[in-house]
Design a protein around this nucleic acid. Sequence first.
DNA 1: CATACAAGCTACAGTGGGTAGAGGTTCAAG
DNA 2: CTTGAACCTCTACCCACTGTAGCTTGTATG
Lengths: 142, 142
Amino acid sequence: MLPIGTLAKRTGTKVQTIRYYEQIGLLPEPGRTEGGQRRYGDKDLDRLAFIRHARQLGFSLEAIRELLELSDSPERSCAQVDAVAHRQLREVEARIGRLEALRIELRRMISQCSADRVADCRILEVLRDHEECLADHEAKDA
Amino acid sequence: MLPIGTLAKRTGTKVQTIRYYEQIGLLPEPGRTEGGQRRYGDKDLDRLAFIRHARQLGFSLEAIRELLELSDSPERSCAQVDAVAHRQLREVEARIGRLEALRIELRRMISQCSADRVADCRILEVLRDHEECLADHEAKDA
DNA sequence: CATACAAGCTACAGTGGGTAGAGGTTCAAG
DNA sequence: CTTGAACCTCTACCCACTGTAGCTTGTATG
């Protein structure tokens, strides 16, 4: 049985994050010592590793909750799992698209500036005047 | 003199967001009617348009604060403005890089799955077992 | 001039996904 | 038995807003 710090190290998670996952019901309440300290087993380790890995791939905690529930019923069709993964892929691709529009606009803005003084700075001018932009960049991300 | 709703419409901002910008000191406190309602002038319109445009390009409110301050001293060198813009460009490019690693990993994961049942689903297996990943994708974004 | 109602006001709570700190308790090694 | 690292709970904070409740003001129309 592992204390929370060991579990944290093994999974590359912070201790507070583990407690946070428990609080929002993503990890089950573990057993406790007589003194009230949490003790974890291998199932907890696996579950947390799954969560962390999915987070690294950008899945939201809600999506992860869904994946964990699905993986609890091994006889079901995996079409839903597939759907969650595809949704995530589409989201990532959309984000890349938006960021690439930003990159182009930023590059253009920077390349136009050859001024010395703030008063003539093209960067500030472009920011002042939206009309000078080519694309309609909208950054729901950043 | 514009009421807040008109300013909101003209700049594509929500009314609450304008009040929020005022609260954090990004917009100056405007004049008020006798009844206490905010009334804005053209300078406010320009300033808010600048802020919104910079936000669309992904600049943080802190960066925008810096840009606004710089643009208030027109005789200064625009090197600092340039630096802020370059920093933003680098951040955007780093984010794109991370997201592209995620995209590759997600695509690989999805393409490997040809199972019917959750029990044999490759997607879940990959998520369970980090070793099956090629890259070290770390999504500080996502 | 009276009324209706859209638009304004303040104040506070909530979002996602954690992170940090205060102030106190428990565990395990020596 | 003592030390001190690791644990505990609780609360507040981060960003950049967004939403709601409960009230007041401004303006157009009859």
